[in-house]
C-alpha cells in the first residue's frame, strides 16, 4: 500500500466518522504548532466533499499561520477577516477551482479584525448556510486561544490533532482544558504508526 492510498483511506475514514456524528461544521486545531492540522483539515474537506457529494467550504481560520492561504497563493487576497470586518462580500472572497468541490475562503487581511463570537455565530449559522459542510483550519489552542475559543463555541465539532510520539500529554491536557466546546472535542492521531491506524475503527465498532 502506497503512502497516498493509506492517507486517502485515513481521510475517508475520518470524513465518515464526522458524517456519522452529523456535524455540519468542523474545526481542526491542535495544542501546539506543527501538528499537521492544515493537512488534516484539507484532506478531510476533500473526503467530506466526496462522501457527501456536495461542495465543502474550507475556511482558513488560522490567524497565526495561514498556511492554506499561502498554499493557494491567496495570502494577500480578501478573505475571512475582511468578511468578518464587513469589508467584502462572502461570495467575492470565496475561491472555487474548476473540477474541485472545495470552496476556499482564505484568511484575508488579519490586521483588520479578530474573530468575535457574535460575528462568527452569524457567519457559521447564516452566511455559510448554503454549504452543507464547513471545515475550518484553526491555529493551535495554546498559542492562539483567542482565535480558537470563539470558533469552538459556534462549530458543531472541534477536532484536536496530535502527533503520535511527539505531542506532550501534559500540554495536550492543558490545551483540552482550555477548550470549552459544546460537544467534547474529538482527537485525530496524526503521523501514527501503522499499528495505530486501524485502532479508531475498532474502538468505534466496539462502542456501537
Amino acid at each position: 500500500m502506497s503512502g497516498d492510498d493509506s492517507m486517502t483511506r485515513a481521510f475517508d475514514g475520518l470524513a465518515s466518522r464526522i458524517d456519522a456524528l452529523g456535524a455540519r461544521s468542523v474545526g481542526f486545531t491542535s495544542a501546539l504548532l506543527g501538528e499537521g492540522v492544515s493537512t488534516v483539515a484539507l484532506g478531510t474537506a476533500l473526503s467530506l466533499a466526496e462522501l457527501r457529494g456536495d461542495e465543502v467550504l474550507l475556511v482558513d481560520g488560522n490567524w497565526l499561520q495561514p498556511s492554506l492561504s499561502e498554499d493557494a497563493g491567496l495570502d494577500a487576497a480578501p478573505g475571512l477577516a475582511d468578511r468578518l470586518a464587513r469589508a467584502t462580500e462572502l461570495d467575492a472572497a470565496i475561491r472555487r477551482t474548476p473540477g474541485s468541490r472545495i470552496a476556499f475562503l482564505p484568511i484575508g487581511d488579519r490586521t483588520s479584525t479578530r474573530p468575535a463570537l457574535r460575528a462568527l455565530g452569524s457567519f457559521v449559522a447564516s452566511e455559510t448556510g448554503s454549504f452543507e459542510t464547513v471545515v475550518v483550519d484553526l491555529p493551535p489552542i495554546l498559542a492562539g486561544e483567542p482565535f480558537v475559543l470563539p470558533w469552538a463555541a459556534v462549530l458543531d465539532q472541534i477536532c484536536v490533532v496530535l502527533r503520535e510520539e511527539a505531542t506532550p500529554l501534559p500540554v495536550l491536557r492543558q490545551a483540552l482544558g482550555r477548550l470549552h466546546a459544546v460537544n467534547a472535542p474529538c482527537i485525530v492521531l496524526n503521523r501514527a504508526k501503522p499499528s495505530s491506524v486501524d485502532v479508531p475503527a475498532k474502538l468505534l465498532a466496539a462502542r456501537t
Binding site: 481521510f11 491536557r173 483540552l176 482527537i187 485525530v188 492521531l189 501503522p194 495505530s196 486501524d198 485502532v199
Partner: peptide, 18 residues
C-alpha cells in the same frame, strides 16, 4: 498511541492518519 489518547476521556479518538 491510541492507548494514551484513550486516557484523555471523554475526548474520543476518531481517526488515525498514518
Amino acid at each position: 498511541g491510541p492507548a494514551d489518547v484513550a486516557r484523555l476521556a471523554p475526548m474520543k479518538l476518531i481517526a488515525s492518519v498514518p
